[in-house]
Design a protein around this nucleic acid. Structure first.
Lengths: 252, 252
DNA sequence: TCCTGTGTTTGATCCACGTCAACGCTCCCA
DNA sequence: TGGGAGCGTTGACGTGGATCAAACACAGGA
């Protein structure tokens, strides 16, 4: 880093800029993330808490299973996966996180992270010290309730994945996965029908309880049937309704 | 109900008895349930909140998917399952709950229950009005933190089930399930090696992502191999270590 | 006591997905 | 320009668990 001498005014301006950058109140994800529904003065208090940001390169670990839990993280930009490894070599991707989503909630239970969080592309996260978040949520009713809803939503999401893993066939699983991504991209202002997958076939397979070859075959099959087009990681959903029918249809 | 006239003393004694019955402070599950680690005066406040109890007969619904969410429930006695139904007829058991465990956490997210909770035997639960619980946990730091840990533990548990459904074979799943029950019975002072299953083969299968025939075959196989004995729903784990090895072993 | 319904076990067969293997595409660096 | 690494695709084949079907065990009621 180059060191340059700045005038006091410039320093002050720079500080303001830095703090503006990291503030929830100026984050365009605030309606997707923790600050939903907070009043201005409440947002300011949250700003003070969420002052630490962290940049990660593709492939970096945000945290690892077994590390002490201190903060939860909000994805500001980029894309993550979380996975669990067990001693005998089995592993499973437990989720993919995109901007506005929280990482690390599983660490609260034992004050240890129970999974690995890995950046799938260059990313940025806001660290939210958990004990301070508890403190603030004792003061701000709205924040407390919203945080509870976020945790509860994670439980509901997990039930959805259990349903997927327990009752669906390969193509149904992939269709459900793609539609889920589609909704989440849409909520973030991106195209719900055309997007780049940030994860490999192997990672998709691990998340869906399938082998990578099966994922690849399902993609090919969907393409043959005109449901989507796929080239490498670029996907275009040509017939989202068709994909949806695939899931909600009775088994034949 | 017979109506009998009681002396004032008797009325008072009866009231004390009733309130003693419903109090967390006298509940022998308090170290497994919400009140963990609370001081005496804090426990008293919690007692006031948890005043409603509910009895259910085997087969009764505690709540149904879609109903308004108002309270979470602590199992006081008995046994529950939760399951999710989707329109096309698919369903999946998402969990089995025993005394000291909480039900309804998934309802917080949208203020609607997202699954059905059904008593598998005659049971009793304590209803904990959620908004009051939030209020109290703003006052009692210990309660707040403990509640967060309980929710987080549920997320970790769900990840375990995802791992089970995503990576394990039928016999591994059943072994993991039985060992999990075993630990939870042990924590409640029951025998960890001999217990009655409260759920049918079909319900076990639904939870484990298997058909009932597969569950039945796995039981028979375990019995043939001397790992356990099973007659109807009565199970005796003869070789828990053997079951454990089955899970942690590499695939051949 | 038999009868009926519900849940469980067991056998025979089938098929979706896993496994193994070969090959293709892209990107990167020598 | 060539070559190698990392992913992704496709084919051939095997298998674990689903499906279908029959018989059995047990509980509750007449």
């Amino acid at each position: 880093m180059k060191k340059t001498r700045l005038s006091p005014e410039a320093v002050k301006a720079k500080q303001a800029f830095e703090s503006m950058k990291t503030a929830c109140s100026n984050c365009n994800l605030r309606e997707l993330c923790l600050p939903i529904g907070l009043a201005d003065d409440e947002l300011k208090k949250l700003d003070q808490l969420v002052s630490t940001r962290k940049r990660l390169k593709r492939g970096d670990h945000l945290y690892r299973a077994g590390q002490a839990f201190e903060s939860i993280f909000a994805v500001r930009s980029g894309f993550f996966k979380t996975d669990v490894l067990i001693e005998d070599g089995r592993d499973q991707v437990t989720g993919f996180q995109m901007p506005g989503e929280l990482l690390g909630l599983d660490g609260i239970s034992n004050e240890l992270h129970t999974c690995n969080a890995i950046a799938l592309e260059d990313s940025e996260v806001c660290a939210i010290p958990f004990s301070q978040l508890e403190g603030l949520s004792r003061q701000i009713h709205t924040l407390q309730n919203h945080f509870h809803k976020v945790m509860s939503r994670e439980i509901v999401r997990d039930h959805g994945v259990m349903m997927l893993l327990g009752t669906m066939r390969a193509e149904e699983r992939l269709a459900a996965f793609l539609l889920n991504l589609s909704h989440r991209f849409k909520a973030r202002g991106y195209s719900p029908i055309e997007f780049n997958l940030r994860m490999s076939r192997d990672e998709i397979g691990s998340y869906l309880g399938l082998k990578l070859e099966t994922v690849s075959r399902a993609f090919s099959r969907f393409q043959d049937e005109g449901l989507l087009s796929v080239h490498q990681r670029k996907v275009c959903l040509l017939d989202p309704d068709g994909l949806h029918q695939l899931i909600s249809h009775q088994r034949c």
